[in-house]
Design a binder for these strands. Structure first.
Lengths: 230, 230
DNA sequence: TAAACACATTGATATATATCAATATAAATT
DNA sequence: AATTTATATTGATATATATCAATGTGTTTA
């Protein structure tokens, strides 16, 4: 772990938007308590079941957040990139992580002591409200995932997944998703074999272009239709 | 709508536990802004998509909270009873309900203006923290549902559902679940026909006793095993 | 009293998707 | 260069579960 002296929470360009609600000395408190760490692709950042001692903020790179279910089957809840707070809902329930996090590219992250965050929640109600907004939004995402997994068929879920990666995560019609077929399956609720078959199908129908892990959306319109109807 | 003059939020026995964090005048503010209403079984309390103008607290009866998905397929997120706050995560995102609520028995509920709740969140940080705890716990429930729906087979989900109703909702090994086969399916992620078949199977194996909508757990041990393995 | 309606039950069939097994390819290690 | 290891691909098969259709039961409505 190291801390770059030049960058602080005050001038950081990729800090959590809710930090805007903090007063200077509160921000300084965060800055003083934080540690930075670097992870290589594939490395685990924290494990489900471990204590939620820190809130985590990515400062560079991409990571996956995933629930480890029964017999080694994972569900990827989200692909995350800088700016987003990562502090599992367990922080305010049982102080345990209810999902794991691993880097999918080289990644740097700030660790902030959770007791400091909780202290600021009690001291600064605008910050508390920001936290509520944050967790509420994530809740809605989980609802969406529940409905999608439950009611859409594979084609629809994969189309939705690709659109999500393109629109929300990599913000480009062509992107390296950094995910194995297995992981794409964990993101969209299907087996790796099904992912392979459907990607090929989409490829053959000129809806996407697939080259290893680089996906290019060729017919976004069609993909959206599949996403809705499937 | 009516308001019983004798009962106030101060002396109410079924109020939300987080109200303990409020000062007397804050509780009085809640009490002054609240309205009570009565619902018959089956009546809708609020609809997905409508504005989250009020937080709702059941004061008697049982209700279901359900997401309306694609082509009339619902997912029952929770069966609720008094004490629990019902204020959808939309309150802090887009001011819209992201699920519907309907009474499954005769029900009374208090409606509290959401602007009052939000005002108190900003004024009272312990209350804000209580709200965070509440929404965090619910988030974990949704995670659990996502994993269960995704990875357990029907037998496991139904067993889990029956145990949940018995342990957490009706708090008795024998209970009237107040749910149609259709609704039991929406709670456990299967069709009504599958519910019928599995209930019969559990009945025939003397795991439960089923009489219309009254379920009696005969072999809890076995049910727990099925819940885990399934 | 009959008709209509909501819900429950049963059986036959369809289908989406997982599982299993084999092989191919590419990357990492010896 | 040879071997191991992780990932990807493909085809054949199994299976859980939904769908469809018919019938039954009880309750409300006309």
């Amino acid at each position: 772990m190291y801390k770059e002296s030049s960058i602080t929470c005050k001038n950081c360009t990729c800090r959590w938007s809710n930090f805007d609600n903090l007063k200077e000395e509160q921000l300084e408190l965060i800055n003083a308590s934080r540690f930075q760490a670097q992870f290589k692709a594939g490395e685990i950042i924290f494990k489900q079941g471990s204590p939620t001692s820190n809130a985590i903020f990515l400062t560079s790179g991409y990571a996956k957040i995933y629930i480890e279910g029964y017999d080694d089957k994972n569900i990827i809840l989200a692909i995350v990139k800088p700016t987003r707070l990562i502090a599992g809902p367990g922080s305010y329930v049982d102080n345990r992580h209810h999902y794991s996090m691993a880097a999918i590219t080289e990644t740097t992250a700030c660790f902030v002591d959770m007791t400091v965050i909780k202290k600021l929640v009690l001291e600064n109600s605008a910050f508390a409200e920001g936290y509520l907004k944050d967790i509420s939004g994530k809740s809605l995402n989980t609802f969406h995932k529940l409905v999608s997994f439950n009611q859409k068929k594979m084609h629809g879920r994969l189309a939705e997944g690709i659109l999500h990666l393109s629109d929300d995560i990599y913000e480009s019609p062509k992107f390296n998703c950094n995910l194995t077929r297995q992981e794409l399956g964990e993101l969209t609720g299907m087996t790796k074999e099904s992912v392979v078959r459907l990607l090929k199908e989409f490829h053959d129908e000129n809806i996407i272009k697939m080259d290893d892990r680089v996906i290019e959306i060729l017919d976004k319109n069609k993909l959206q239709k599949i996403s809705i109807s499937g």
